[in-house]
Design a binder for these strands. Structure first.
Lengths: 239, 239
DNA sequence: CGCGTCCTTGACACCAGTCAAGCGTTGTGG
DNA sequence: CCACAACGCTTGACTGGTGTCAAGGACGCG
């Protein structure tokens, strides 16, 4: 189910150990929060199906999304070190999540070397994604920000086998999209309309279609190297 | 010298192990780059004195700063997992850095449990700082962005004993400041002038003075919880 | 049928980018 | 010792991307 084989070559035992972690799963609904900002001992989650996001609340009441969590991503596997959660985790669609004990994570880290490496790799990838988001949101026009996010999500979803041809699921509301790339919902709409008018995307009923990926990538200067997925992108396409 | 005691309570042996890492140090100048974007096997650095930053180059030639590296911070201790550097590391002032072998880091991680935890904690803190930057740069006015950055840097410098009374060193050019908070150099200037006019800061000759910290923090809604420094902030003030 | 949620569009105001010019300081070489 | 260049800071004028407010439309659901 989960394909973090990008970060390390996993032996069968490691793979089994990782799968073992996802033993206790439960289904969750859109808008359900998995972790509340300020929680003292937040649970560790792994999202198996659906999208989630990390968000923070501003003093003016607005909610902002810092990163998107796609199937196969973990929430904050090491947060126990920090003492409290500095952000919330909320589902963006219905889905399926696994709850994991901190002690179990620790056990895997200690005993399964390459599984530990895989976990570690995935947290480094989060870093890289955050840095790219910082650049994207800070220094590009709204249209390009959105285009870039689409490219990134497509690439990440591709790595876990969730892109079918030229399309993939897109559960995001325009308001949520705006919160993720730091623009207002109204402007998110205008930008989407512009991308549609240019034939760069086709978005209807929660499905994103990218007819010409190269053109979209060129439009927003998307280079996927920061995702560090290259090495195993084909081998990982099947579990 | 380095006080990452915030992340874990360090035994003498762990402390010694960490200090041992910084054995090979060399002095570096402002503008010197420690790692170039695209390097295949980037060296691991720990900044002992001076400020550095991670930056990326945009296709239009502009340089953007994603995070600031202060004395005691490490560069990318785990980058070997990723294969290549997706950003550059450049000095913002003259300083002193230690180069560390990846193998040495690995040895410490394997043998010194709480030192490993401290390293881990510091990489989680980087995550948290990046998320906060995302919010800061995306959803606040320029003046408040700068004010928030000042508050953050003051807090981080305080944790390593580099704040003297109401002032601390400020090597940043207005252009660099702009690159760090995603505004133009001209606007960075205007915002600094505004903060000065309000009596919130006093910045001259590379020294930042904050006469009334509470007022500045209130102005930009700064809450330091995301830095996760609270628990040891007094005990760590002396090595 | 009526309500809620999300999408769409218009008008207007404003923050911030760009271009451009001038000033002050530092450092270097004649 | 002075001239000059390099760099960083400061300020003005103008433009434009984006936020906000507001109203209406499309769709699904009870």
């Amino acid at each position: 189910m989960r394909k973090m084989a990008h970060g390390a070559t996993l032996a069968e035992a490691d793979r089994a150990a990782l799968i073992h972690l996802t033993r206790h799963m439960r289904s969750v609904e859109r808008r359900q929060t998995l972790t509340e900002e300020g929680d003292l001992n937040p649970r560790i989650h792994i999202v198996l199906e659906g999208w989630a996001c990390r968000s923070k609340l501003l003093s003016n009441g607005k909610r902002l999304i810092t990163d998107l969590i796609l199937p196969g991503d973990a929430c904050h596997p090491h947060t126990n070190l920090l003492g409290h959660a500095d952000h919330s985790v909320t589902m963006l669609s219905d889905g399926l999540v696994a709850e994991v004990e901190a002690a179990e994570i620790a056990r895997v880290l200690a005993h399964q070397a390459s599984a530990a490496q895989a976990l570690h790799w995935s947290s480094l990838q989060v870093d890289a994604i955050l840095r790219q988001a910082l650049i994207n949101n800070g220094h590009r026009l709204a249209d390009a920000r959105i285009a870039h996010l689409i490219c990134e999500l497509r690439t990440r979803l591709l790595a876990v086998g969730l892109v079918k041809g030229d399309r993939f699921a897109w559960p995001l509301t325009q308001e949520e999209l705006g919160q993720a790339v730091a623009i207002s919902n109204v402007h998110a709409n205008r930008s989407l309309m512009a991308l549609r008018a240019d034939g760069l995307i086709d978005l209807t009923t929660r499905v994103m279609v990218v007819p010409d990926l190269a053109r979209l990538a060129a439009y927003c200067d998307f280079r996927p190297d920061y995702l560090h997925l290259s090495k195993g992108i084909d081998s990982a396409l099947r579990t």
